[in-house]
Amino acid sequence: MNRITSLIMQASVAMSMALFIAPSADAQAKKLRIGVEGAYPPFSEIDTSGNLKGFDIDITNALCAQMKRDCELVQLSFDGMIPALQSRKIDAVIASMSITDERRKAVEFSNKYYKTPARFVVKAGSKLELTPAGLKGKRVGVQRSTTHDRYIADTYKDAKIVRYTKQDEVFLDLASGRLDAAFLDSIAADIGFLKKPAGKGFAFAGPEIEDRKYFGDGAGVALRKSDTALRDEFNAAIAALRSNGTYKKIQDKYFDFDVYGSAPVAAGATAPAAAKPAASKK
């Protein structure tokens, strides 16, 4: 009896010690916790054996190797990324998150690591007119709190916007006919849906849309406002991957074109950390 009690005591003391020690040890090793999505093919998905894979995941691993950092990937839903970042559950987000002015109010961004346009997907042969009048009352599926969500909400005010937590769910409901159209990243649509059996009978509609106001400057690594040193580290690593050929090697695994997009983002795009428009928010 006594031995058991003392054992429990020792165990609990050891555990509480571990709890106290862990954060300081962490500060030394600087293990980076990176939020990834795992439900946004081909950028981020889970393979049949339960492992994360995709362009975002490979880029994340390459960035970590380049920065010589120990990284831990944390799988989160997209609308939980920025809250998790702000509550310090994670240190960075690499989840195809577009660099927009709106998000810049809340978080810091690295330079872009890829940029692709947005597009509508509809049933092949659909006569749907992609105008505010044509989409009036039509059900348009978007992933919640994405740039695509904002764009549709502002541009097609009379459309019935149906919001999903995951892109996969948009595909499911588009395929089953619950949606008249989906609006999303063209690459995610092409590889995640149209080129798969589920996407048979569906097609792109309308032009590629690259409205900077909504879609920003491409996808970047999101960080806390205060972590400017980490941002510079990521920027250097992205530039290094671009120049040493690692980026191309990763990209060729998934795409037959350059997803980095045309002109590289201007250096001034990462606003100085001193200007903190989000200060009023929190």
Binding site: D79, G80, I82, P83, Q86, S87, S145, D149, R163, K281
Partner: peptide, 22 residues
Amino acid sequence: STVTIVDLTGAARELNARTYLP
């Protein structure tokens, strides 16, 4: 709220998504 209905919880999710104030 998990099947696209905007009930109280759905509204909270959208509010959170818009403001990042969970």
